[in-house]
């Protein structure tokens, strides 16, 4: 209960398979699939690696989750973190090369 693959965005490139610290992602019918969702740590390594915004982080009900999903659009060292729900949308920008943007 942590990350979900968005099937119509996933292109099966397999990049996420090579960053998951728990080896929890596999290719299933040439798309990424989370093998054991309950073992996900929520580190977001896969979100940061996916070039297609095809992986969403969310909170389980036990963590106060109410359906908001977080995806990342990447542009070099800049990350656009998009939190979306049918009634809500916001974007937060971080840049790992810029120290002053804490």
């Amino acid at each position: 209960m942590s990350v979900k693959i968005i099937p119509d965005r996933c292109r099966g490139c397999g990049r996420c398979l090579t960053v998951c610290p728990g080896d929890l992602i596999a290719l299933d019918s040439s798309l990424a699939a989370i093998k054991e969702p309950e073992l996900c740590w929520g580190c977001a390594a896969c979100l940061k690696t996916c070039p297609y915004e095809a992986i969403a982080l969310y909170l389980s009900p036990a963590q106060g989750g109410r359906g908001l999903k977080l995806t990342i659009k990447k542009d070099g060292t800049t990350l656009f973190w998009k939190a979306t729900a049918p009634d809500y949308q916001t974007v937060i920008v971080t840049d790992s090369a810029k120290a002053k943007d804490y």
């Binding site: 908001l68 990350l79 916001t90 920008v93």
Partner: peptide, 16 residues
């Protein structure tokens, strides 16, 4: 932003 750099779930919790 600081939480996105260490524990993205926490920012998500604030946004929820």
């Amino acid at each position: 932003r600081a939480y996105l750099n260490m524990c993205p779930s926490q920012t998500l919790q604030f946004l929820e």
